[in-house]
């Protein structure tokens, strides 16, 4: 009997110790659970906003412009002939740009050749004209051009000058170019160009070395990228 009582007491003690240990542990757990609840209640007052990073450096920068053009190149004594070419420009700022051009044309006959009947001054391959140049341009008059009273396009008048090489009559000729152009922006990335340039180089075909002024009028389409 006594042993049974002893067993009961022992069980009660061990159970109570176990219960105490359990209670204390759950108490700690409960304390741990209340703290995030507190934070959550605070966050209800200050709602958490999803962070949006603005990275303007990721925005598409369109400072380069590529142009294809066609027109007429008049070569002193050799008549006016078709010219086609391409230009590649980098816009340094809103006013200044640098541009490189590559173009080809073919010179016609001089009046001397036509009148004398025979005796060509140049062979067919010597009449091929290829020129390239590097120029600096300045947007002189940026503004709007009105097609009708409601329709307007952004436009700019620019002046340009540079230096390059013209291969004509079998040799390379140092060439200065000076001129101007009119650019009309059709939309954000496309523009139409009308250009007038004077290509100045020396020609020594007709006995003496003379400086020639060779005017060129072209129209072109360009894309900014």
């Amino acid at each position: 009997m006594a042993s049974r009582l002893r067993l009961f007491l022992l069980n009660t003690i061990s159970a109570s110790i176990f219960m105490m240990a359990f209670w204390s542990s759950t108490n700690v757990c409960a304390e741990e659970e209340t703290s995030p609840l507190k934070i959550q209640s605070e966050q209800l007052i200050q709602p958490e906003i999803e962070r949006r990073d603005v990275e303007l450096s990721k925005i598409d920068t369109e400072d380069f412009e590529v142009t294809v053009f066609a027109g007429i190149l008049s070569v002193e004594d050799f008549g006016a002939n078709a010219v086609i070419g391409a230009r590649f420009a980098y816009h340094i700022n809103e006013d200044i740009f640098v541009e490189t051009t590559l173009a080809a044309s073919k010179a016609g006959q001089t009046s001397y050749e036509r009148l004398s009947g025979g005796l060509p001054l140049l062979t067919s391959s010597q009449r091929d004209i290829i020129y390239y140049d590097v120029s600096i341009g300045y947007n002189l008059l940026p503004g709007e051009s009105f097609l009708t009273s409601d329709t307007s396009f952004n436009s700019a008048l620019y002046v340009i000058a540079g230096v390059g090489v013209t291969t004509f009559a079998g040799s390379d000729r140092l060439t200065l170019n000076i001129g101007g152009g009119f650019r009309v922006l059709a939309n954000d990335w496309m523009a139409l160009h009308v250009d007038v340039r004077d290509h100045i180089f020396n020609l020594d075909i007709l006995a003496e070395n003379t400086t020639t002024n060779n005017l060129e009028i072209t129209i072109g389409v360009s894309a900014f990228f």
Binding site: E62, V68, I84, A86, L102, F224, F225
Partner: peptide
């Protein structure tokens, strides 16, 4: 000049596509 023109045409096409 024909070859040059073809080259330029292809170049412009690719530029327009990238733009």
């Amino acid at each position: 000049s024909m070859r040059l023109f073809t080259l330029l045409f292809v170049l412009l096409q690719s530029m327009l596509i990238t733009a």
